[in-house]
Design a protein around this nucleic acid. Structure first.
Lengths: 204, 204
DNA sequence: GTCTATATAGTGATAGAC
DNA sequence: GTCTATCACTATATAGAC
């Protein structure tokens, strides 16, 4: 089994000041979870990436469960903020485009959604982590559901049936596509999902 | 992190004769992979479930990569055979129902698709395993695509756009829903996907 | 706050008796 | 074909120096 962990360079946090050790650990932890799952990396892997010793990680995150929990919180907070930052004035189909853009740029082709990954690893995560993942999923589903309702109203999207159910189906589809895009080393699968829902074939 | 592996009872193989040790190992391996991912169980876990020693597993599957490969082959063969066994005379919407039935009963609420799980664990599996997973995905997508084309022709399904693209989107949606059904301890999400595509609200 | 050093347990894998 | 015994390594986690 392939146990090598590729070295990474770019931190996720965008800040003017040098990020704290804690933040650097949290950034790389998110990357490793999205890349390899919660059982696919060790404190040693993470320490090597950050350039500290494993005991320093234990200082900030006493147990791996703590690390997972904080990683989910950070990822969820950041992603939901990006969701809220999508311009409310945009027509519904373009909102979906922004959502997919977000998903594509967040993963560099090697990473999938952190919450999707940990949902696959559900049997390995503690209850409190599972609850946070549930909250993340529901927030995304609700946002997508309301955008679909909008899209039906403004005539930019094909939406069949109840928008809430359609929102759940769309989220599942995007999560699944994220995994499959990585498997086939492409991102067209992700873009095709929204493409197929659009009423207008081309936007300008 | 939760590292306990629940003990299982029912073997997957259905045969009159007592299944061989090799088959029992392979059955339980598939279960553990679907439950916890390829990094979430050890030879010791598997040996304890089967009731043998780890060295016996190494006898049949020298390395864990070998075990993963054989597990994917067995799962893929069995699942694709079940796909082919779906009555070709059925209307398209009922074929989709059979597909979802298959997905639901195969997982007991704790397991997800083996290939979906290993696609999430992509960074941990060798090339040959990744290729088998790709083949499994493409076979499923092709089958779903042709059922969707049928469904448009026989008027039982709402299909928007290219059936091939729609087949890929549907497979992704079902894979994602499998993960999310387990997260929320339900299976309605999985059934709602196909339910929303149906032209007739109820089929007698 | 970061380190060295270490404890304890688990990992995949192999040699060789029966 | 299955076992006991063991290897070299890695895992998470802790104690205590600096």
């Amino acid at each position: 089994m392939n146990t090598t962990v590729p070295t990474t360079t770019t931190p996720i946090t965008t800040s003017i000041t040098t990020p704290s050790t804690r933040d650097r650990i949290l950034d790389h932890a998110q990357k490793l979870i999205r890349l390899r799952g919660c059982n696919g990396f060790s404190y040693r892997d993470l320490a090597d990436h950050v350039g500290v010793k494993t005991s320093s990680i234990h200082y900030y995150f006493p147990s791996k469960d703590d690390l997972l929990f904080e990683a989910v919180l950070a990822y969820s907070t950041r992603t939901l903020a990006a969701l809220r930052a999508i311009d409310a004035q945009l027509p519904a189909d373009e909102k979906l485009d922004r959502y997919v853009d977000m998903s594509v740029e967040l993963s560099n082709g090697e990473e999938i959604c952190l919450c999707g990954m940990l949902a696959a690893d559900l049997a390995s995560v503690p209850e409190r982590v599972a609850r946070e993942i549930q909250g993340f999923v529901q927030a995304n589903e609700a946002w997508l559901g309301s955008v679909l309702a909008e899209g039906r109203a403004d005539g930019t999207l094909h939406v069949h049936g109840d928008p809430t159910t359609a929102g759940r189906a769309l989220f599942a589809s995007l999560q699944g596509s994220g995994v499959l895009c990585r498997l086939f080393k492409t991102n067209t699968r992700l873009r095709d999902i929204v493409g197929a829902m659009r009423v207008q074939p081309a936007t300008t």
